[in-house]
Design a protein around this nucleic acid. Sequence first.
DNA 1: GGCTCATGCCAACTATTATTGGCATACGCA
DNA 2: TGCGTATGCCAATAATAGTTGGCATGAGCC
Lengths: 118, 118
Amino acid sequence: MSQGEVWELSGDRLVEVLATLASPHRLRVLAALTDGRTYVSQLARDLGISRALLQVHLKKLEKAGLVTAHLELSPDGKALKYYEATPFSLHLTPDVVAVAATTLSTAGDGDAAPKGNS
Amino acid sequence: MSQGEVWELSGDRLVEVLATLASPHRLRVLAALTDGRTYVSQLARDLGISRALLQVHLKKLEKAGLVTAHLELSPDGKALKYYEATPFSLHLTPDVVAVAATTLSTAGDGDAAPKGNS
DNA sequence: GGCTCATGCCAACTATTATTGGCATACGCA
DNA sequence: TGCGTATGCCAATAATAGTTGGCATGAGCC
C-alpha cells in the first residue's frame, strides 16, 4: 500500500526533501502518520514530545510535501488539525543525484565552475 | 551503469545517509565523482571550493559510505587521494520510512511511547 | 636550496536547526 | 465563570553544521 507515483525533483527540492527526512523525530512522525492520521496534540502525546516541537517538525514535513493537514471538527466542536502522510516514491541512485545536481540553484553556495574543466 | 544493490538501512543509518545527501555541496561532489574519479585538489578546483571545505564534505560522504578513497601515486611520485562514488540504490517510500523508524536508536532524542496508537 | 603541488588538520567564527516555556485565543461543559 | 483541551506563535537558548585561513609535512623539479 501507499504506492505513490515516482517523484521528479529538482536539485533544490531534492535537498529539501532529504533534509526533511534526515531527522529521527520527523521519521517517527511520518511513521506514525503512515500508521494512520491523527491530530497534533494526540500525536504529540503518542510520540512523547512537546506540541511546540512537533508543530515545527510537522510544518517542515508539510512544506516538503510529505504530509498534508486539514482542520476537522470533533463531535464536541473542538477544532482538530489532522495530519496524514503523503504517499511518495523516491528512487535514489548516483545517476539521479548527478542529474539533480545540475539543477541546483543554491544561491550563496558558490556556483561551481562549468564542467569539462580538465 | 552504476547500478548498485538496493540498500538495507537501519533507521540511524538512513538518517545519516539522508543527512549526508541533503547538501548542495555534497550533491555536486557526488555528481562530479559519478562523472569520473579524481583527487581532492583537482576536485576542489573543478567545483570552485576550498580544499578544507571539500575535505570535510568528502569525509562525511565517505563516512556515509557514498564514496570511497584510495591513495595513488602519480607518475611523478606525488601521492594523490582519489575518490570515487559508490553505486547505491535507495528506494524511499512511506513504508520504508515507517520500518526504518522502528529501528531508530536516537539516543537523547527521547524514545517515543510504544505504538498501539488507538 | 627554493618553488610548486598534494595531503591533513585545527582553531575560531558564522550560520542553521533544534528545543523549551510561556502566553494568547477559541470552544464546550459542569 | 472556571476547567480542560485544542491550536498558534514567539522569543530565547542550546546544539550542530558549515566555512575560512593558516600552518605543517612530504615529494618532485629547476
